[in-house]
Design a protein around this nucleic acid. Structure first.
Lengths: 137, 137
DNA sequence: TTATTCGTGCAACTAAGTTGCATCATCCTA
DNA sequence: TAGGATGATGCAACTTAGTTGCACGAATAA
């Protein structure tokens, strides 16, 4: 397990308590997190800072943005193969009907989408609804 | 082409000017429409009426809800095979990067998603980003 | 024609996402 | 190491989307 500050150093990101708390919250929770949820969880920091650091982290390739099955904007930690502005975010997401959390599913489960002739498809987001590993039993 | 009031009559839906204007706006435009857009287009009607009729139409199986590639809630006319609370909404949607409109794609282009063993997938929404028929040239 | 149900309009509100600006911290360089 | 430049934060305010309560008016059925 890599230390949070190490990641920051490696990418030349200034290490602040807000940023550390933000990343730790992500590593603690194995699902995607919405801004309002982060706002509540990190009350000691201003909403704006949290909000702006989310955007910043996304630019840096540390987190990626996604919309869950209810259209709610969430952020999730990127696996180590995400470069700046080059998210390998071609995995699907699952929103659990029971616990309402949204999880990243393994890339191998994600089908390739063929582009119909009439249009051009540049990227695809697949969002599933169902039951997560914890709730399915 | 079926008359709007005929559809209403067939389903036992009371025909009002707000509802007629709403459905005509959908038939005139071949893409999915957001509530704010409808609000502007149907200024002669109150936002609340438009909003509530959208929900009502969805319950009746006339329109279906979708989130576009930017997480924006939109509504689109159902093909005739949608029954109340039983949308056959298993086609994918394409948000055009140029004109920003969202179109329903034909069902045959939509892949079947296999459920990973660890989780249960009940439904899937596929949203593509790219260029629509009009903008691709 | 009257009671009931349904649809509309108005107002107000919550929640999400966003921006401007002043302040404070950090870094770099002379 | 002083001082300027840049970066991060906190506060306030605001826009937009989505939603609810309530009273009034229209349509329907007995």
């Amino acid at each position: 397990m890599i230390n949070t500050t190490e990641i920051f150093e490696k990418q030349g990101i200034r290490s602040t308590t807000c940023r550390i708390d933000l990343v730790s919250y992500f590593t603690k929770n194995k699902f995607a997190i919405s801004f309002p949820q982060l706002e509540k969880a990190l009350k000691k920091h201003d909403r704006t800072s949290v909000y702006r650091n989310l955007i910043f982290f996304e630019e840096q390739g540390l987190v990626h943005k996604l919309y869950d099955a209810d259209g709610i904007l969430k952020y999730a930690l990127c696996k180590d193969n995400c470069a700046e502005h080059l998210h390998h975010d071609n995995h699907m997401h699952l929103t659990c009907n029971k616990c309402k959390h949204t999880y990243c599913l393994n890339e191998k489960h994600t089908p390739k989408i063929k582009s119909p002739k009439k249009v051009v498809i540049e990227s695809v987001a697949i969002t599933a609804r169902g039951l997560c590993e914890n709730c399915k039993n």
